[in-house]
Design a protein around this nucleic acid. Structure first.
Length: 460
RNA sequence: GGCCCGUUCGUCUAGCGGUUAGGACUCCGGCCUCUCACGCCGGCAACAGGGGUUCGAGUCCCCUACGGGUCACCA
C-alpha cells in the first residue's frame, strides 16, 4: 500500500509551496488507494504548534484535502526516539561526545579560517578514557566513512554522495536529551510505514543522513521524490514581498480552491497539453514521476485565468455560498441566477464578482464623470423621458420582456440602441460598463428601473 | 568555498535520436457586439554556450557559464 505524508514544521501558516507538496502527496496516496498522513515536526519546543496546526487544518478544509487517521506530533513521541537512541548506543553505532559547544565552535572557526569544510573531527568516536567532568554529552551517530551513498530519486534520478564530502558523525540527540531532526524524520517515516516520501528538494541533501539512520536501525528505505521549489515571477526565491504566501489569502482574494489546486498541480507537473484538471482528473492522471526537475516561477496571470475558467462553470449554489464568505448574500435575490450568469464571464475573481454585482443591486452613489460627458449629450434627455413613459405603461419581467419592449420603442422612434443603452446603463450603474442592459434591467426590475432613470433625469 | 541539483518562447510546459520545435498564460491584430467582458480567428516569441558520439541531436556524453539548494546541539 502506498503511504505518503505531509510533514510541516509549525511556522504559523501554510504557504503555497507547502500546499503543493501536500497536494502531490495526497494525490499519489489517493490514486493508489493508500494513506495520506499528517505529521507535525515540532521537536523544537519553542514554537507554538497549536496555531500552526489550526492554520493547516483551515487550508486543508478549504481546498478539500483530507488526511488519514490522527495527526502525529513529534513532540509526543520523545520516548520512542529515546528507545532508539539507547539501542544505537548499546550496539556501538552511536556514542557520547563530550565536546562543549564552545570547543565545537572554535573547531569550526579554525576550519573555516583554513578554508576547510566545517566538520566534527571524530575525537570521541572511539573514546575509551574517563569523560570530562561537568559536561552533558551529545549523542553522535557513527556515520560510515568514505562511502558512497546512492539512491534513486523519483524525480531527479540517480543521486549519489560521498560521505566524506557531506557529513560527519552528526548529532542525533542534544545535550538536553532531545533528538534532532534528521534522526526523528527517519524513524517516523519508517515507523509510519511510509512508502513514498514526497518533499521539497531543499531536503535533498538531508537524505543521505536519513539513509544512514535507516541503515543503522535496520529500517526499509522508502522511495524519495524531491520536488523543486516555486520561485517568484522574477525567478528568485519566493518571499513575503511577492504577495500572497499564505494559502488562505487566496480565499480572501476571491479564488476558488479548485483553481488554486489546478494552478499548483500544473506548476512543475504536466500531462501533455492539458491545462484544466478537476480533482477527479488529477487523481486519475497524477504521477510524481512526471514532476519536472527544475524550479518553476509563480505566474499570477495564469492563476487568474484558471480562476475565471472555474467562474464560468461552477454551480449557482457554490458561487452564492462563496460570496457569503465575502460578505455578500444574494441567496434571497429574486434574480440571483441571472445576476450570476450575467457577470460570471466578466469577473475573474469572486471579489470582482462581488463588486460588479453590488454595482447593479445598489443604486449608484455617483455618476462617472467621463461616462456622463461622453454619453449624456444630444437628445438623450428627450429619448430617456420618452422611454420612461413607455416603461411605466408596461410590465416587463425578464430580460426578454425588456428587450422586446426596448426594440419596439426604438423602431417606433427610429432610435439606435447606442443612443439609448448607454444612458440607461449610466442610470442603473452610474458607469458606462455593465452586462447587457436587458439583463441589468431585468435584475433590478421595473420599479427600481423607473426610480433610477428618474434619479438620473433629475440630476442632470 | 565543498558537495548536490538544475537550464526549451517573458512565464507554465510538450518533446523521450529524424517535428515547419506543439499547447497554455501574457501581449498585439481581426471578427462578434448595446458598453465591458466572454468567445472565435490570426500573430510575435524558445532549445544557455562550446566540444564530442551519430548518417542525423532540444533529445546521449563531457566541459564552461549562469541559476538554485545545502553545509547547526533549526526543521
Amino acid at each position: 500500500m502506498t503511504i505518503t505524508r505531509f510533514a510541516p514544521s509549525p511556522t504559523g501558516y501554510l504557504h503555497i509551496g507547502g500546499l503543493r507538496t501536500a497536494l502531490y502527496s495526497y494525490l499519489w496516496a489517493r490514486k493508489n488507494s493508500g494513506k495520506f498522513l499528517l505529521r507535525i515536526e515540532d521537536t523544537d519546543q519553542k514554537r507554538n504548534s497549536f496555531e500552526a496546526m489550526e492554520a493547516i487544518k483551515q487550508v486543508f478544509d478549504w481546498v478539500g484535502l483530507e488526511y488519514d487517521g490522527d495527526v502525529y506530533y513529534q513532540s509526543k513521541r520523545f520516548d520512542l526516539y529515546k528507545k532508539y537512541i539507547d539501542q544505537l548506543l548499546n550496539e556501538g553505532k552511536a556514542y557520547k561526545c563530550y565536546m562543549s559547544k564552545e570547543e565545537l565552535t572554535a573547531l569550526r572557526e579554525e576550519q573555516m579560517a583554513n578554508k576547510q569544510r566545517a566538520k566534527y573531527d571524530g575525537r570521541y568516536r572511539d573514546f575509551e578514557g574517563t569523560p570530562p567532568q561537568g559536561i552533558e554529552p551529545v549523542i553522535r551517530i557513527k556515520a560510515p566513512q568514505n562511502t558512497i551513498i546512492e539512491f534513486e530519486d523519483g524525480i531527479k534520478g540517480k543521486v549519489s554522495f560521498n560521505t566524506d564530502d557531506i557529513l560527519d558523525d552528526f548529532i542525533i540527540a542534544r545535550s538536553d536529551g532531545t533528538p534532532t531532526y534528521n534522526f526523528v524524520v527517519a524513524i517516523d517515516d519508517a515507523l509510519m510505514g511510509l512508502t513514498d516520501v514526497i518533499r521539497g528538494d531543499d531536503h535533498l541533501s538531508n537524505t543521505p543522513k536519513q539513509i544512514i539512520v535507516y541503515q543503522a536501525l535496520g529500517f526499509d528505505i522508502p522511495k524519495f521524490y524531491h520536488v523543486p521549489m516555486i520561485l517568484n515571477p522574477q525567478g528568485k526565491k519566493l518571499s513575503k514581498r511577492d504577495g500572497a504566501m499564505d494559502a488562505m489569502d487566496y480565499k480572501t482574494l476571491g479564488y476558488f480552491p479548485e483553481a488554486l489546486l489546478n494552478f499548483l498541480v500544473r506548476l512543475g507537473w504536466s500531462h501533455g497539453d492539458q491545462e484544466v484538471f478537476s480533482m477527479q482528473e488529477m487523481l486519475e492522471l497524477f504521477d510524481p514521476k512526471d514532476i519536472n526537475k527544475s524550479a518553476s516561477a509563480y505566474n499570477g496571470e495564469k492563476l487568474l485565468w484558471l480562476n475565471s475558467n472555474y467562474m464560468k462553470t461552477l454551480s449557482y449554489e457554490r458561487i452564492i455560498d462563496d460570496l457569503k464568505d465575502l460578505e455578500l448574500d444574494i441567496s434571497a435575490h429574486p434574480k440571483k441566477e441571472l445576476l450570476i450568469d450575467s457577470h460570471r464571464e466578466r469577473a475573474k475573481t469572486l471579489v470582482e464578482l462581488k463588486t460588479q454585482i453590488e454595482s447593479i443591486i445598489n443604486k449608484p452613489r455617483e455618476y462617472d464623470a467621463k461616462a456622463v460627458k461622453k454619453f449624456l449629450k444630444g437628445e438623450w434627455k428627450e429619448i430617456l423621458t420618452k422611454f420612461l413613459e413607455i416603461l411605466k405603461q408596461n410590465s416587463p419581467e425578464n430580460s426578454q420582456d425588456f428587450e422586446e419592449m426596448t426594440v419596439k420603442f426604438m423602431e417606433e422612434n427610429d432610435i439606435k440602441l447606442g443612443k439609448l443603452a448607454q444612458p440607461i446603463r449610466i442610470a442603473i450603474t452610474g458607469s458606462s460598463v455593465s452586462p447587457s442592459v436587458y439583463d441589468t434591467m431585468a435584475i433590478i426590475g421595473k420599479d427600481e428601473l423607473v426610480s433610477r432613470i428618474e434619479n438620473l433625469l433629475g440630476t442632470f
